Amino acid sequence: MGTFKDEKDVIVGSAKEKIGGWTKNEELEQSGKEQAMEGRIGQEHREQRVDELDRQNDERDARNDRTTPETIGQEELLSEEHPDLNKMTSTERRDADQLKHFTGIEDKL
């Protein structure tokens, strides 16, 4: 899983590397290796970040699960005064975080 740029870099870099090998163009082959490696590194960083966000969301969900109606009060639980009690699954929260990141909203907040 990665961005389109990372995937493109892996594909184009691998193609450059093979073409450089066939044509005995060492410069093109080396350039292709570097581009493919950059794409793979970008994909790995992205996967690590997604895993980290999933872990954080799971921890947040676990903390929210400990909040019971006995500790809050049944009336407060159903109240609109507590918007943070509208629970999102970790997948929904991850998707919202990714949307903020890719649209640039995160930088403006």
Rank of each mutant, 00 (worst) to 15 (best):
residue 52 E to D: 12
residue 55 R to H: 13
residue 59 E to N: 12
residue 71 T to G: 04
residue 7 E to N: 08
residue 48 Q to E: 10
residue 71 T to M: 03
residue 72 I to T: 03
residue 89 T to M: 15
residue 77 L to T: 09
residue 22 W to D: 02
residue 66 R to D: 06
residue 109 L to I: 04
residue 64 N to W: 12
residue 19 I to V: 14
residue 31 S to D: 10
residue 73 G to V: 02
residue 101 H to N: 08
residue 54 D to R: 15
residue 49 R to N: 14
residue 99 L to Q: 14
residue 24 K to Q: 06
residue 13 G to P: 00
residue 46 R to M: 05
residue 76 E to C: 02
residue 92 E to L: 05
residue 96 A to G: 06
residue 16 K to R: 06
residue 46 R to N: 05
residue 67 T to C: 03
residue 105 I to A: 04
residue 80 E to D: 13
residue 1 M to A: 04
residue 85 L to S: 01
residue 93 R to I: 06
residue 43 Q to N: 08
residue 57 N to W: 09
residue 108 K to T: 05
residue 92 E to A: 02
residue 102 F to Y: 14
residue 62 A to G: 06
residue 47 E to Y: 05
residue 11 I to E: 11
residue 23 T to R: 14
residue 43 Q to V: 08
residue 6 D to E: 15
residue 69 P to Y: 06
residue 23 T to K: 14
residue 47 E to K: 08
residue 16 K to L: 07
residue 44 E to S: 05
residue 105 I to F: 04
residue 52 E to M: 04
residue 51 D to G: 05
residue 48 Q to N: 10
residue 47 E to V: 00
residue 94 R to G: 02
residue 51 D to Q: 14
residue 98 Q to C: 07
residue 100 K to R: 08
residue 82 H to G: 03
residue 58 D to Q: 10
residue 11 I to A: 12
residue 90 S to Q: 07
residue 50 V to M: 13
residue 4 F to I: 07
residue 28 L to D: 00
residue 4 F to K: 13
residue 61 D to F: 11
residue 91 T to K: 02
residue 5 K to F: 10
residue 30 Q to P: 02
residue 87 K to P: 02
residue 45 H to S: 06
residue 2 G to W: 01
residue 7 E to C: 15
residue 64 N to M: 11
residue 22 W to P: 00
residue 99 L to R: 12
residue 73 G to Y: 06
residue 95 D to G: 02
residue 4 F to P: 09
residue 61 D to I: 11
residue 101 H to C: 07
residue 22 W to N: 06
residue 75 E to W: 00
residue 49 R to L: 15
residue 46 R to E: 04
residue 89 T to P: 13
residue 16 K to C: 01
residue 38 E to D: 13
residue 92 E to M: 02
residue 19 I to D: 03
residue 32 G to E: 04
residue 107 D to M: 12
residue 11 I to Q: 15
residue 6 D to S: 15
residue 34 E to K: 02
residue 28 L to G: 01
residue 74 Q to L: 14
